[in-house]
Amino acid sequence: MLFDTHAHLNDPDFAADLPAAVARAEEAGVRFIVNVGYDLLSSRIAVKIAENYPGCYAAVGIHPHDAAKVIQETYTEIKKLAQATKVVAIGEIGLDYYRDLSPREIQQEVFREQISLAKELKLPIIIHDRDAHGDVLQIIKEEKAGENGGILHCFSGSWEMARQCMKLGFYISLAGPVTFKNAHRVQDLAKLIPLDSLLIETDCPYLTPEPYRGRQNEPAYVREVAKRIAELRRTTLEELAEKTSQNAKKLFKIQ
């Protein structure tokens, strides 16, 4: 049993292929998928997919790229969407200093507001962190953001940052880059992260793992992420899949 903790089947790239993509995931042993919102539209679609597919769940939230577009009504709608039965997290939220599509101070404000909302709703958070490690760590400490758990998704920070985040109540999730030939740092992390704190994901349609690079990523390929991490840890795919799935079900409160 595999659990893709971060997918975007709510992305337009899957609009014409959604049933087939879900079927391929099931054939690959992927029993659970969390589709993660990044704006209001994608959050609505994630909720709808969760309603229509038994193994799919949803997270709702505003990505830092869109932070500058947020108004008070945005939070109201995210809160309303979060009441749906199969919404299991607020996300993806956080900071992105690589593209800087929204001013950094606005990104930080919207990040803090969504952490507050998640705490009010007693939901975990899914954090996007790109080239913003210091500020992400500072904010989650100040806001006590790990109160209901959370994920540093597609983690790209240091081992020291990972250690601090785990102490604050967060899981560390690894994606397709762990399969890349020269991704030595993330491969080292894959060996070091305690199994109790590890999750796996695709972040599809992005970051397609080996040996499928060049194709559109999809939840079925989370199997390749799991296989590579199992190899690095010198354990079996079955053990890695079982433990990471248990971790995800515990975090998201899925029976």
Rank of each mutant, 00 (worst) to 15 (best):
I33H: 09
K250Y: 12
L195P: 06
V22D: 08
I193N: 01
F180P: 00
K48C: 04
M166V: 11
L117N: 04
A89E: 07
N217Y: 13
G55T: 12
S158Y: 10
E77V: 10
D129G: 00
R24K: 13
A175T: 15
S42Y: 03
F32G: 01
I126P: 03
T202N: 12
T235F: 06
R44K: 14
R228L: 00
Y206A: 12
C154P: 12
S245D: 00
R213Y: 07
H8V: 08
G94S: 07
A226Q: 00
V110L: 07
L117M: 13
I254W: 09
G91D: 06
R185K: 15
I172T: 01
M161G: 05
I151M: 03
I193L: 04
I127G: 01
P219A: 14
P177F: 02
T202D: 06
T74V: 13
L9H: 04
K250M: 14
E109S: 13
N182C: 02
A226V: 00
A50H: 12
V178N: 01
E73F: 05
K141L: 14
T244G: 00
N10A: 11
A68Y: 11
S158W: 11
R223V: 10
K191A: 01
L2F: 15
S173F: 09
P219K: 10
P12L: 07
G214N: 13
T244L: 02
E51A: 14
R24P: 06
K250N: 15
R112T: 12
Y57P: 11
I139Q: 12
K122N: 05
F111N: 02
D17H: 06
G146M: 08
K119C: 08
L101D: 04
R234M: 10
F155A: 04
I106W: 08
A16M: 10
K80L: 12
R99N: 11
T5K: 04
D100R: 12
D135P: 06
E142A: 15
T236V: 03
Q164W: 05
Q83T: 13
L207Y: 11
A25K: 02
L81E: 02
R233F: 11
E238I: 09
V222Y: 03
Y212K: 15
N148C: 14
N182P: 03
S197A: 08
Y53M: 12
L101T: 03
P211D: 09
A84C: 06
D39H: 13
F3G: 00
K249I: 14
A58N: 04
P12H: 10
G176S: 12
L152K: 01
L123P: 01
V222R: 02
Y171A: 05
L189Q: 04
L40G: 05
K86L: 07
K80I: 05
E218G: 13
E77N: 10
L199I: 03
E120D: 15
